[in-house]
Nucleic acid binder design. Structure first.
Length: 951
RNA sequence: GCCCGAGUGGCGGAAUGGCAGACGCAGCGGACUCAAAAUCCGCCGAUUGAAAGAUCGUGUGGGUUCGAGUCCCACCUCGGGCACCA
């Protein structure tokens, strides 16, 4: 009779071999135990989850980016980040930290609503189902979340506070003098007291109630504006700048987006532009993420300059431009306005009217993107009018061209063709003058193969950089000869301000945040409008304003290309809900509700705060709890989450919005740290091989065969590429499948061992078994595979093994501190391989081994911990500490280099001084042979490292 | 075009300026077995050599250094972000 063959994953002849099946059995058992014992409940310093014992315990807040509960469940990218944070959290529990670690769901948003529209099932139902499903999957991974702190943004108990924060933002204004947000009531006081002038100078009391409301609305951090917004007919809603891709489409759904003037809610994030840039310096984030945020905010320092013009009607007016190069004002030889600039009509002469009208018509039919992408050949037309260059009085022509964008700066530029490549091209295209105002260095001319000249007709392109100014003086300003741009700018700015022609200023690419969506599945705005159309926020006692139930939750969507369609929010249809009678302090009156909902980003702007105090019904967070988990730290860190792990795709969306909200809450005194996320770590993507057939269609990656390095699917040749694992590339491996075959502990180990956390890495199913084998060996080194009991034949501890143990403890600790999980695992494997060679794990160090494995493979560790005779969970055991005495070696082997090549190795006492090491090296046989009698000219001894001889 | 980041065996990857390739996968050899699987032991960059060894080797070309995968300069390739931003 033949015996069944055995693979590492399958059941074996050994009843207690650590197979996938046994792992599974162990893991499910421990999930129940952890739940039943509340193992991961984390106490607060106060409140319902409070426990006075935590007061003197150091805290650690570990956070994963808020997952969206997709109907497809978890993909492999989730366990990658989640395992990393779980290991970190578990490790730090073992170092005595009080660790806050949980997970909730960012459950509002378009996908749930789109799914609901397809199926006709209310999004609340599908959302709840999806969350339940994902909770099951998370549990399967053995993540040590405090389940009491899990929240969903769609829970009225949560969005009650999202709405409350909105009212805080609405009822605030930004004081640019104090650079802080303040309650709007203080602005009213300043206006009323006359310490702050009203916009038109009239005393505050003389303004009508409606005029007062208008003034306040102009200051609020959340405000309604009629402005160009991104209208996406295919989604039936407007979207934020950050949600529009580089090719002008919605990042959700990939529909065309059009610029339209619409009345929408905005958040005055631009007020915080400076602080959002400057405070990046406080954060432990990667340079690349910081660079992306700086780039998006796009701070540029320059000046506003006024150019006088006379309109066709004869009136005097000014064109204000923004420039980063005020120093080049002497070289401004024409001006260019955006086609939409409000002064274009007034400046267009009758002769040019038809040309200008035609150009503007063409420009208006092109989207922003088409204007930028189509081709870079400059187009434009002359208005017929001239402006006066304030610095030299010259009359310069005013053109319009679509390379000038209305959305940036003032929508008008001064063109300095000799110093700006775009202006240079435009001038060449239309034969406009290019006066030289800098003397480029000889090297610049040499580079372009021409002789030095100030005749720009010979120049192939504009010169940008530091070089002495020429032709740059008037009666009261002379920058000629100055050769650095910084000084030139400073001098010119001083002149502009002294003569009233402009002033130094800072401009940003960042726009205010478009905050309303014409959808159903989001937080309703806690806002009503009175009969004059002014907005009022609902008082606290009327929160939450719950999303009204309806079967008609689908927004009206349009032909994706129908730019002129208009949004219709689903809430508009609920007239009984929209019309409401309320007493807001001045007697019952009729009001109209706001029918927009907030964007999905709202709920994720503050969720980490709610994790701290999830059950608080009196406040969004208790101040004492907030200070404990989020406050500034004794070591000087400014506070916030201690470790935040997630994908890089949120670099300018969530991370910018959340920082903004947090700063408003900070300014208003609701939180104690200026930043929400102190240390940010961006995980890489899980990639996987994907295969395309000859038509370019993706084929199921799991049906592909490899023969002689070529790949075939159903006999047909296919081409291989690597891409982000997912449904669209037909190459997704579900975490559940891997747990089922190998167990969660093996999956966790594999994900962590693939490489550094921040690198993207290709998934290789065949490699997973390596980590099962490792765990299997750990098990076998302690457990009798036939009885399941602790082995009775464990070897005695020897000195060598003891030293390896302590070296491993030391290395694993420092690797975990640095999030180097891959090398930590390698060190554990080395230790375990040494134990295997020894014939098992000596009982004296078994506890150490199990405790070190615990953060990585917690289920296996719990099981072994029991077998070692302990009753408690491993969770709060102390992580082993290396004995420094066992880290030092008695003797060490050093390489000896001769002229940079390793020629020999010598063994010397670890404590040997340089002279002794040198003597030992020179005495070495091979060294002597290599030297062949020569005397080294130089000897470099690096203690503990190397000996280097130079002959 | 501009700004980040990365290029190391067949593959994933490791290496405070100091012995390149830890650890895992794959492969090769051996032990055990009637046999296979599993397990355990060993080998595993290239060229050369019977072997000891020698020479070369971290995208390319220069440089700094006693010594460079690591630092500097230039370039090439790939990935990410921004892109007529005045």
């Amino acid at each position: 009779m033949s015996t069944a063959s055995e693979s590492p994953t399958s059941e074996s002849q050994h009843a207690f071999r650590y197979s996938g099946a046994l792992a599974q059995e162990i893991e499910l058992r421990w999930h129940d135990w952890w739940d039943a014992n509340g193992t991961f409940h984390t106490p607060n310093p106060a409140g319902p989850l409070g426990d006075p014992r935590v007061a003197d315990q150091p805290k650690l807040f570990v956070l994963d980016m808020f997952p969206y509960p997709s109907g497809a469940g978890l993909h492999m990218g989730h366990p990658l980040g989640f395992t990393a944070t779980d290991i970190y959290a578990r490790y730090h529990r073992m170092t005595g930290k009080n660790v806050l670690y949980t997970m909730g769901f960012d459950a509002f948003g378009l996908p749930a609503e789109q799914y609901a529209v397809q199926t006709g099932q209310h999004p609340a139902i599908t959302t709840d189902q999806n969350i339940a499903n994902i909770r099951t999957q998370l549990r399967r991974l053995g993540l040590s979340h405090d389940p009491r702190r899990s929240i969903s943004t769609t829970d009225p108990g949560y969005y009650r506070w999202t709405q409350w924060i909105f009212t805080q933002i609405f009822n605030s204004w930004y004081d640019t003098d104090r650079t802080t947000a303040r309650p709007i009531s203080e602005l009213v006081q300043e206006f009323a007291a006359g310490t702050r002038a009203t916009p038109d100078g009239r005393p505050w009391a003389e303004l009508s109630a409606s005029e007062q409301a208008d003034v306040l609305d102009d200051h609020r951090l959340a405000y309604i504006s009629e402005a160009p917004v991104n209208w996406c007919p295919g989604l039936g809603t407007v979207v934020a700048n950050e949600e529009v891709t580089a090719d002008g489409r919605s990042d959700r759904g990939n529909f065309p987006v059009f610029k339209r003037n619409m009345r929408q809610w905005m958040m005055r994030i631009t007020a915080y532009a400076d602080r959002l840039v400057d405070d990046l310096d406080l954060l432990d984030w990667t340079d690349s993420i910081k660079a992306m945020q700086r780039n998006w905010i796009g701070r540029s320092e320059g000046a506003r300059v006024d150019f006088g013009v006379t309109t066709v009607g004869g009136a005097a007016d000014v064109i204000t431009v923004f420039t980063t190069r005020p120093d080049t004002l002497f070289g401004a030889s024409f001006m260019v306005l955006a086609p939409e600039h409000p002064l274009v009509d007034a400046l267009t002469t009758p002769e040019q009217a038809a040309t200008v009208a035609e150009y503007r018509r063409q420009a208006s039919t092109k989207s922003d993107v088409a204007r930028q992408v189509e081709d870079k050949t400059k187009t434009g037309v002359f208005t017929g009018s001239y402006a006066t260059n304030p610095i030299n009085g010259e009359q310069i022509p005013v053109w319009i061209a679509d390379y000038v964008l209305m959305g940036y700066g003032t929508g008008a530029i001064m063109a300095v063709p000799c110093g700006d490549e775009r202006d240079f091209e435009f001038a060449r295209q239309f034969g406009l003058p290019i006066p030289a105002i800098q003397q480029p260095p000889a090297s610049w001319f040499a580079e372009h193969g021409i002789d030095p000249t100030l005749d720009t007709a010979a120049w192939p392109q504009a010169f940008v950089g530091d070089a002495p100014y020429v032709n740059s003086s008037n009666e009261s300003l002379d920058v000629n000869g100055i050769s650095d741009v910084a000084t030139g700018k400073r001098r010119t700015n001083e002149w502009l301000e002294a003569n009233g022609h402009g002033q130094a200023t800072i401009n940003y690419k960042l726009r205010d945040w478009l905050f309303s969506r014409q959808r159903y599945w989001g937080e309703p705005f806690p806002v009503v409008y009175d009969e004059t159309g002014h907005a009022h926020t609902l008082p606290d006692e009327l929160l939450p304003l719950e999303l009204p139930p309806t079967d008609s939750f689908s927004p009206r969507t349009f032909d994706p290309d129908d730019a002129m369609s208009n949004p219709e929010s689903p809430l508009d249809r609920l007239t009984d809900w929209v019309r409401v009678e309320l007493d807001l302090g001045d007697g019952p009156k009729r009001y109209r509700r706001d029918t927009n909902v907030m964007p999905q980003w709202a709920g994720s702007c503050w969720y980490e705060l709610r994790y701290c105090d999830p059950t608080n019904e009196d406040a969004f967070i208790d101040p004492e709890v907030e200070r404990y988990w989020m406050g500034p730290q004794p070591d000087g860190r400014t506070g916030g989450v201690d470790l935040y792990v997630g994908g890089v795709e949120h670099a300018v969306l969530h991370l910018l919005y959340a920082r903004f909200w947090h700063k408003v809450l900070f300014d208003l005194g609701h939180v104690s740290s200026p930043e929400p996320y102190h240390r940010l770590f961006n995980q890489g993507y899980i990639l996987a091989a994907a295969f395309q057939d000859e038509r370019g269609m993706y084929v199921d990656a799991f049906g592909v065969e490899e023969r002689d390095g070529k790949h075939f699917s159903g006999g047909e040749p296919v081409t291989r590429e690597y891409g982000k694992m997912g449904k669209s590339l037909k190459n997704a491996v579900a975490p559940d499948e891997v747990c089922g075959e190998y167990g969660a502990d093996t999956l966790r180990l594999y994900l962590m061992s693939m490489g550094p956390l921040d690198a993207s890495r290709p998934w290789e199913s065949k490699d997973v078994v390596g980590m099962l084998r490792f765990l299997q060996r750990v098990w076998r080194n302690l457990v009798d595979e036939d009885t399941g009991a602790l082995r009775s034949d464990l070897p005695a501890l020897d000195d060598t093994t003891d030293r390896i143990l302590h070296r491993t403890i030391d290395g694993v600790r420092s690797d975990l501190e640095g999030l180097r999980f891959n090398t930590a695992i390698a060190k554990l494997i080395e230790l375990n391989n040494a134990l295997t060679k020894l014939g098992g794990c000596p009982r004296e160090i078994a506890d150490h081994l199990v405790l070190m494995v615990a953060p990585f493979a917690p289920h296996l560790a719990e099981e072994l911990w029991r077998k070692l005779g302990h009753d408690e969970t491993v969770t709060y055991q102390s992580f082993p500490v290396a004995d420094p005495a066992k880290l030092v070696q008695d003797t060490i082997e050093l390489p000896v280099q001769i002229n940079g090549k390793v020629r020999s190795r010598i063994t010397v006492p670890a404590a040997a001084d340089a002279a002794a090491v040198e003597a030992a090296a020179l005495a070495d046989e091979k060294v002597q042979a290599s030297l062949a009698g020569a005397t080294p000219k130089k000897v470099v001894v690096v203690p503990g490292r190397t000996v280097s001889l130079v002959v």
